[in-house]
Structures are given as C-alpha cells and as structure tokens.
C-alpha cells in the first residue's frame, strides 16, 4: 500500500463569471515512480474532468508544465511524489496571466521577452547557400549551448522577487541569460552599447535585486548567477562609459 496523498489544488476559471478562486482537495494512493504528470492526469480522468493544467513532452524538455509545488516553482512532469510530503499544494505560477486553474499564459510572456531582448543573431551578412559555414571553436559552441538550454518554463520568473513586484516590467533571469548567450556568440554583431540599450535599465539588469531565486529554481540548472554577474559588470562598465561620454560632450 502506498501513502494516501492529499492534493490541494488552486481552482479558478476566469472565463466563467460564476467562478471564484478557491482550493479543491483530491486524494490518490501513491504508486511506484509516481510523478505529478501521472497525478494530474489521473485526477482529471478519474475525478474532475474540468481541471486545467498543461503538459506537452512529459520528459522535462519542453517547459510547459511549471507549477508552484508546495510554494516552489518546478516542472510537474519530473517531480516525483516520493520526494514530497503526503500533503501537496499546487498553485499556478505567479507573474504570468492565468488561463485557468494551474494553466498560465507563458507563451505571450515569452514572445514579449524575445521581442524585448531581440533574441536573434544580428548581422549585416547575407547567407550564401553555396559557401562553407563560418568556423567556430567547438569549446565556444559548447559554451553557447550551455546557455541555449533554457526551455522558457518560467520557473526563474515565478521565483523572482522583482518580477513578482513588477510583473509587467522586469525582464527576469531568462532574458539576461538570453542576452548573455548572444553576447558570447561571434555571429551576433551587436556591441556592448547596443546590448546596453536592451538591458541597461531598471527593467533590465540594474533592476535585479540579487535574490537569486532564479538560480535556485532553474530546473535545467543553467548557471544564471554567473550570467547576472557578467552582465552587470559589462553593463555597469558601459554605463560609466556613457556617463563620461555625456560629461565629455558638455
């Protein structure tokens, strides 16, 4: 016999005028290798077909299923019940707009983030189909991949004190990581001043309070703290340069 697990799950359907936010309790007997993917699907198929939540790959790759699990954001699919107490509270991630119950709109938020940081290689070159690729050192390619591993799950944003205070403004560690990724990439021709335009402000790197919930909660264990430090150093330097340039012009 497995443990008897109690799940307290946040319920609210914003589309339904009669719906009010509340918690519902569900009970399941724990099974071997049970994950929250199994739990939520069983609850929906066996107990409450109205329950809203998101899964896609169910393998920790796509970033769809981040929720607050006993107060901490994590991917539901890779969270095993055996690592949790017998009473488990599931809430939707804060900061993102609620779609219903545990489901939040990360799509709109991340599209906005990608537009803000201009998440693409900026180059004046034109692709030439019949030419050999530009060469790159393998070690550098691996370094870029390290930061490219972000799956845009939103855990770092949900865990961020500043993003919770300023849900519409603050860019969050995911954005800083993205900027760091392109700064490292020789194919991107942007200079530090151009990056400064993107993140050198209070919604950007200077707004970070250094609480580092992002670093602690990233399910892909991306070294976010290092990127924050690097970016702050480089952007701080750019800021000082800007000040001198302005003083010089006067």
């Amino acid at each position: 016999m497995g443990r008897n697990l109690k799940f307290n799950i946040f319920r609210f359907n914003p589309e339904d005028p009669a719906s009010v936010p509340h918690m519902d309790a569900y009970y399941l007997e724990e099974t071997v290798a049970m994950t929250l993917f199994i739990v939520l699907n069983r609850i929906r198929e066996e107990q409450d077909p109205t329950l809203m939540f998101d899964f896609m790959c169910r393998a920790g790759i796509c970033g769809s299923c981040a929720v607050m699990i006993n107060g901490r954001p994590d991917l539901a699919c890779h969270t095993k019940t055996k690592k949790l107490p017998s009473e488990i509270t599931l809430m939707p991630m804060p900061v993102f707009k609620l779609i219903g119950d545990l489901s939040v709109d990360t799509g709109t938020w991340f599209r906005g983030m990608n537009e803000k940081v201009q998440s693409w290689v900026h180059t004046n070159k034109v692709f030439k189909p019949n030419e050999e690729e530009e060469r790159m050192d393998n070690a550098l390619a691996e370094e870029i991949y390290e930061l490219e591993r972000c799956i845009e799950c939103g855990c770092c944003v949900a865990a961020c004190g500043k993003a919770n205070m300023l849900p519409d403004g603050f860019m969050g560690a995911t954005a800083f990581n993205r900027v760091a990724r392109f700064m490292m990439d020789p194919r991107d021709e942007r200079n530090n001043d151009q990056y400064f335009e993107v993140v050198g402000n209070d919604d950007g790197i200077f707004g970070c309070l250094g609480l580092l919930g992002c670093e602690d909660m990233c399910p892909k264990k991306i070294p976010l703290q290092d990127q924050l430090g690097m970016l702050r150093r480089k952007m701080g330097f750019s800021q000082v340069k800007h000040l001198f340039q302005r003083a010089g012009k006067k």
């Binding site: 693409w120 290689v121 070159k125 189909p129 019949n130 690729e133 393998n138 550098l140 390619a141």
Partner: peptide
C-alpha cells in the same frame, strides 16, 4: 547541407570538429 549551414548562420551552436 544548405539547410544545416543556414541554421548555423541563424545561430545554431552546432558541435564542431576538434
């Protein structure tokens, strides 16, 4: 081969020959 190189041009960090 063209498509792979185009993706490299757009930013894929392909593993490289050492």
């Amino acid at each position: 081969p063209i498509a792979v190189r185009e993706m490299a041009f757009w930013g894929i960090p392909w593993n490289r020959v050492v």
